[in-house]
Amino acid sequence: MEFQFEWSIFFESIPMLMRGVKFTIIITIGGLSLGFFIGTLIGLMKLAKHAILRTLAITYIEAVRGTPMLVQAMFLYYGVPMALGLRIPPLTAGVIIIAVNSGAYIAEIVRGSVQSIDPGQTEAGRSIGLTRSQTMLYIIWPQAFKRMIPPLGNQFIISLKDTSLLMVIGVGELLRTGQEIVAVSFRAFEVYLAVAVVYLVMTLSIAKALRMVENHLNMRTTR
């Protein structure tokens, strides 16, 4: 039997996929917002004077980066409720997984960016009587944040794609929505191609937006 590409299936599946897109976006943005908070905290802990804080930060980063996200998702969604006796809704679990996961990578982005700022900046800040935290807040952070933007953009794209793994815990995101369409249409080729195209449109849009933000910042002040 000869394979025939069905354009109608391809085009009809796209509007149906939008329901999944909505969850993909909610989880990505929710997870990354929380992940940025975690990443900042852990990244600054890794730069702390106290060894205990540094050890805690390193343990977190290694544990998260050293285990597959799929395992983390299964553990949180199926494992943790057994121990705590409470059910975590799939959407909440999805946001937490993306947050915990991206947090570890963002921590390294934060640490690297902060460390890349000339130590002379800290010295100048301290020399006018600013405290350590004031120096971080007013001098180091604004400069470091600018350097974080490109790697954070990459992380945005990675996390968006990672949300597809959340189909295993029943989150109705884009890939799972595609799978449901395949289950009734039996047209895996067209539907999964449409799913891929939708992901691509989203990731390319992020990349484009990122370039615009970078250009805008470069215009305001260089460095």
Binding site: D118, G120, Q121, E123, A124, G125, S127, I128, G129, L130, Q134, Y138, I139, P142, Q143, K146, T221, R223
Partner: peptide, 27 residues
């Protein structure tokens, strides 16, 4: 005890006036 550095170490993200007023405002 103010300090002047070999490499200036001005704050590149703040304008000249802001560089001079950061200490008075925050400290």
């Amino acid at each position: 005890a103010g300090m002047v550095f070999q490499q200036f170490n001005l704050f590149p993200h703040i304008n000249v006036l802001g560089n001079v007023t950061l200490g008075p405002v925050k400290v």
